[in-house]
Design a protein around this nucleic acid. Structure first.
Length: 725
DNA sequence: GGGGGAAGGACCA
DNA sequence: TTCCTGGTCCTTCCCCC
C-alpha cells in the first residue's frame, strides 16, 4: 500500500508544517487544471503565485486547518488498512466480486444519453455581445470570485472559483466582466428550446448543461428513415438495391453514426441560434456521457460506443478526478491508497470496500466498470431554499441581527416566488476565520414569512452568541428553509390546525382536568429551543466583555458600543428579542389569519387582535375551517361561521355570544400566558406513544449552546452516489 | 439498535 | 486588501424509545 499523505507539497505534522509553512503549497489551494483548456500549463509557476498571494491570509489558515483534518482522516484510514487481516481482505474481495457480478448483470447499454455542455458559457456570452473581448484574457465575476474565464485566460491558470485578485496576479491584463444572469438565462432558454426537440424530458443541470436521452428520437428517426427507404425500394430495381451498399447505413441508424449525426445537428442548431458553441458526450449512461463531453472541448463531441469493451477501455485510464462526484478531498484520500485511475479502483477494490462506506464503495465499483445512471431526473422538487451574504467582518451584535432581518426579508421573497414553505429554519454563519457553522431548528409547521422566520433565526443567533460569550466576528450570514412543502392553502392551514388537532386528540384521550393541571404546572424553559426567549441588553453586555478562552482578548470593533451605549440599548433589545420583533409585524394568527409560528409573538398578537374587534369575522371564517368537531353543515357557510370551539379547552362559542376581546381573554386564561409550544411540551408528558413528544423533548434538551461534536475520523462524505444510482 | 434531528462537510455549477 | 452563492447528498453524533 502506498504511503499516505505523500502529496508533494503538503506537510502533515506540526513540525513539518513549521518547517515548511512559508514554502508549502496546500494541495487544496493548488491549481485544479481539471478543466478544458488547461492542459500543459506551468502548474508550478501558477501554484507559486497562488501560494504567495494567499499565504498568511485567514482564508489560507483555514484551508490549512481543513487540510490537516483531511490528513488526519487519511492517517486513520491507513491505520485501518494496516490492521486489515488477510481473512478480512479475502472476505472483502469476495463481496466486491459479488457486487461486481450483480452490477455487470444490470449493465444497460441500450440507451443513448447525451451530455451537452456550453463552452465557457458566461464568458462566451460576454464575448459574443462585446467582440472586443475576443482574443483577450477575460473572466466573468468580481475581484472576490470568478464564475468562469475564457480559454485565453485559462492559459494563465485563471479559472472559475478563483478569486479575482489572484487571477489578476496570474494575468495582470485580465479583463473582468461583471455577471449578467438575465442575459445568461435568456440564452439558456434558447438552448433548452432546441434540446427539447430531441428529448422533451431532458434534464437541465444549471444554465449551461443538460442531459438528454435521445434513444426514442433515434428510434423515431430510424422508422421514418426506414419508411422512406421502403418507398425508395419499391421504386428501385431489386438488383440495384442489392448492389448499392449505402442502404446498409440503415443498420447504423440508432447506433454510433446516427447518434453522432443527431448531436452534431443539435450543436449546429445551438450555434446558429445563439452564436455560441457547445460540446457533447454521447454514451450509454449519464456518468460516461458527462466525462465524454469533456473529451473534445471546446466545440467538439465524443461518442463512446455502447459495448462493454469500449466502456471498459474508456474508464480504464480515466483519472479519478474526472469522475463527477470525486473532488479534491476524495481524490486525496484515494491517492493515499494508491488509487489514481479507475483501473486502480478495480485493483484496490478489496481495500476500498473495507475502509469506505458501502455507499461510497459501491459507487466506486460502478465507476470502475463504467456503470452509471440511465434515468434522467426531471426537474426534481427542490429540497431547500436559502440566501446568504458575505460582507466585511462584523462583530457588532446589532448589525448581525440587522443582517439577519434583511436576509429573512430576501428569503421571504424567494420563498414566495418558489411557492414553498419550510419546517426547518437554518442559520448559517461564517466567522472571520472562515469557519462555517450551521444552526437549525425544526418547527412543527411550515413557515415562509419573514415575521415567522426571523424570530427563529434571531433565537439561533442569540444562542450562538451566548455560546461564544458574545465574541464573534462574522463575514457571512445565511438563512434558509428546508423540509419544504408547497405553500398552498393546505399547508398554510397547518400551523394552528396542527396544534388544535393534537391538543384535541389528546384531550379526547386524556382526562381534561389532568391536562389542564399539566399545563398549569408545566415549567417554562426560557432556554428552550422551541421558545423565543430574549437576551436582555445587560446580558448582552456581559457576553460581549468576556475574555476569550484562548487567552487573547480578541479585538471587539463595536462590541462595547453595542451593549453599553444608551443609543444602542433599545435597538439591541428589540433585535435580540424575537418577540418584540414579531409582535409588531403582521403575523398570521389563529384569529385573523391562517397561520402563526412564533408563539411568543402569538400571545402578544392575541392581545392586539382582541382589541381590534373588526377582525372578528376573519377569525370565525378561518376558525371554522380548522374546527372539525363542530356539528356544522360544511355546505352551509352561515352555519360554519356561527359555531366554533376553543382549541385548548373545547369550550364552544357562537359568534353571537363572544367578541374577540372575550375570546382573547379566554385564550389568555387557557394558555396561562404560556406559549402553545409549552403546551405541547406539557402535553407530551402524557403521551408516551406520541412521536411529537420525542421531537419536543429532544429539542428542549438540545437547546442552548450547541453541543460540541467530537471530531472523529469519518469516512468521506459522498455526493458521488447520485451520479451512479 | 433504530429513528430522527442537528451539525458538518464534500461536491457541483 | 481581497476567496461567492445556492443547492444536494451523505455521514456522524446524540437523544429517545
Amino acid at each position: 500500500m502506498n504511503s499516505a499523505i505523500s502529496s508533494e507539497n503538503d506537510v502533515n505534522d506540526e513540525d513539518g508544517f513549521e518547517r515548511n509553512k512559508n514554502t508549502a503549497v496546500l494541495s487544496r489551494m493548488a491549481l485544479n487544471d481539471n478543466k478544458a483548456g488547461m492542459k500543459g500549463l506551468d502548474k508550478e509557476k501558477i501554484n507559486k503565485i497562488i501560494h504567495e498571494n494567499s499565504v498568511g491570509s485567514k482564508f489560507y489558515e483555514n484551508e490549512r486547518k481543513k487540510d490537516a483534518q483531511v490528513d488526519a482522516r487519511i492517517q486513520k484510514m491507513l491505520e485501518q488498512v494496516e490492521k486489515l487481516t488477510p481473512e478480512q481482505m479475502e472476505t472483502s474481495l469476495c463481496r466486491t466480486n459479488v457486487i461486481l457480478k450483480e452490477l455487470e448483470s444490470s449493465r444497460d447499454l441500450s440507451r443513448t444519453i447525451v451530455h451537452i455542455d456550453m463552452d465557457a458559457f458566461y464568458a462566451s456570452v460576454e464575448e459574443r455581445d462585446n467582440p472586443e473581448l475576443k482574443n483577450k484574457p477575460m473572466a466573468v465575476g468580481g475581484s472576490d470570485m470568478l464564475s468562469t474565464s475564457n480559454y485565453i485566460a485559462r492559459r494563465y491558470g485563471v479559472r472559475a472559483a478563483m478569486p479575482g485578485f489572484i487571477a489578476k496576479k496570474l494575468c495582470p491584463e485580465l479583463i473582468l466582466v461583471p455577471l449578467n444572469f438575465g442575459k445568461y438565462r435568456e440564452v439558456s432558454a434558447q438552448v433548452r428550446e432546441i434540446l427539447a426537440e430531441y428529448d422533451s424530458n431532458f434534464s437541465p443541470m444549471g444554465l449551461d448543461e443538460a442531459y438528454l436521452d435521445i434513444t426514442s428520437y433515434l428510434k423515431t428517426k430510424k422508422s421514418t428513415s426506414m419508411a422512406n427507404e421502403t418507398i425508395i425500394k419499391t421504386n428501385a430495381l431489386k438488383e440495384q438495391d442489392e448492389m448499392n451498399p449505402s442502404h446498409q447505413s440503415d443498420e447504423k441508424i440508432g447506433s454510433g453514426t446516427a447518434a453522432e449525426e443527431v448531436v452534431n445537428e443539435m450543436r449546429s442548431k445551438i450555434q446558429q441560434v445563439t452564436q455560441l458553441t457547445a460540446s457533447a458526450g454521447i454514451a450509454c449512461n449519464t456518468f460516461l456521457a458527462k466525462v465524454a463531453s469533456d473529451m473534445n472541448k471546446p466545440n467538439g463531441q465524443f461518442y463512446l460506443e455502447p459495448t462493454r469493451e469500449s466502456v471498459m477501455e474508456f474508464v480504464k485510464n480515466l483519472p479519478i478526478r474526472k469522475v463527477p462526484g470525486i473532488g479534491k478531498v476524495t481524490e486525496k484520500m484515494l491517492n493515499a491508497l494508491g488509487v489514481k485511475t479507475c483501473q486502480d479502483i478495480y485493483d484496490n477494490r478489496a481495500v476500498l470496500h473495507a475502509v469506505f462506506s458501502s455507499v461510497m464503495s459501491n459507487s466506486l465499483l460502478r465507476i470502475c466498470i463504467g456503470i452509471g445512471s440511465t434515468i434522467l431526473e426531471n426537474e426534481s422538487e427542490r429540497k431547500s431554499i436559502s440566501t446568504e451574504r458575505t460582507f466585511r467582518d462584523i462583530s457588532n451584535h446589532q448589525e448581525m441581527f440587522q443582517k439577519c432581518e434583511e436576509l429573512c426579508e430576501a428569503l421571504e421573497a424567494d420563498v414566495k416566488k418558489a411557492d414553498v414553505k419550510g419546517m426547518t429554519v437554518t442559520l448559517k454563519i461564517k466567522t472571520a476565520a472562515f469557519e462555517l457553522h450551521t444552526r437549525s431548528k425544526t418547527l412543527f409547521y411550515p413557515v415562509g414569512c419573514k415575521s415567522e422566520i426571523y424570530p427563529v433565526i434571531a433565537d439561533l443567533l442569540k444562542q450562538e452568541l451566548a455560546a461564544n460569550k458574545g465574541q464573534m466576528k462574522l463575514r457571512l450570514i445565511g438563512v434558509g428553509l428546508s423540509k419544504l412543502s408547497n405553500a398552498g392553502k393546505d399547508s398554510q392551514q397547518k400551523s394552528l390546525d396542527y396544534f388544535i388537532q393534537k391538543v384535541k386528540a389528546k384531550k379526547k384521550s386524556q382526562d381534561t382536568d389532568t391536562l389542564a393541571s399539566s399545563i398549569k404546572n408545566s415549567e417554562y424553559h426560557p432556554d428552550s429551543s422551541l421558545t423565543s426567549s430574549a437576551v436582555t441588553s445587560s446580558e448582552c453586555e456581559s457576553i460581549q466583555t468576556t475574555d476569550l478562552e484562548d487567552g487573547g482578548q480578541r479585538e471587539i470593533v463595536n462590541g462595547a458600543n453595542a451593549s453599553t451605549t444608551s443609543s444602542n440599548e433599545e435597538p439591541s433589545e428589540h433585535i435580540l428579542n424575537p418577540c418584540n420583533d414579531a409582535a409588531d409585524k403582521e403575523i398570521n394568527c389563529p384569529i385573523c389569519e391562517k397561520e402563526f409560528n412564533d408563539l411568543c409573538a402569538l400571545n402578544k398578537h392575541l392581545d392586539e387582535c382582541g382589541i381590534t374587534q373588526n377582525n372578528k369575522n376573519g377569525y370565525l371564517e378561518e376558525h371554522t375551517e380548522i374546527e372539525e368537531n363542530n356539528s356544522v353543515n360544511n355546505n352551509d357557510l352561515t352555519q360554519q361561521i356561527t359555531c366554533f370551539t376553543c382549541p385548548l379547552c373545547n369550550a364552544t362559542f357562537c359568534c353571537q355570544d363572544i367578541t374577540l376581546e372575550k375570546f382573547n381573554t379566554h385564550v389568555d386564561s387557557c394558555l396561562n400566558r404560556k406559549t402553545i409550544m409549552e403546551l405541547v411540551k406539557s402535553e407530551s408528558n402524557y403521551a408516551n406513544s406520541d412521536s411529537e413528544k420525542t421531537k419536543t423533548k429532544r429539542n428542549s434538551k438540545t437547546s442552548g449552546p450547541p453541543r460540541k461534536r467530537q471530531k472523529t475520523m469519518s469516512k468521506p462524505s459522498r455526493t458521488i452516489d447520485k451520479f451512479f444510482k
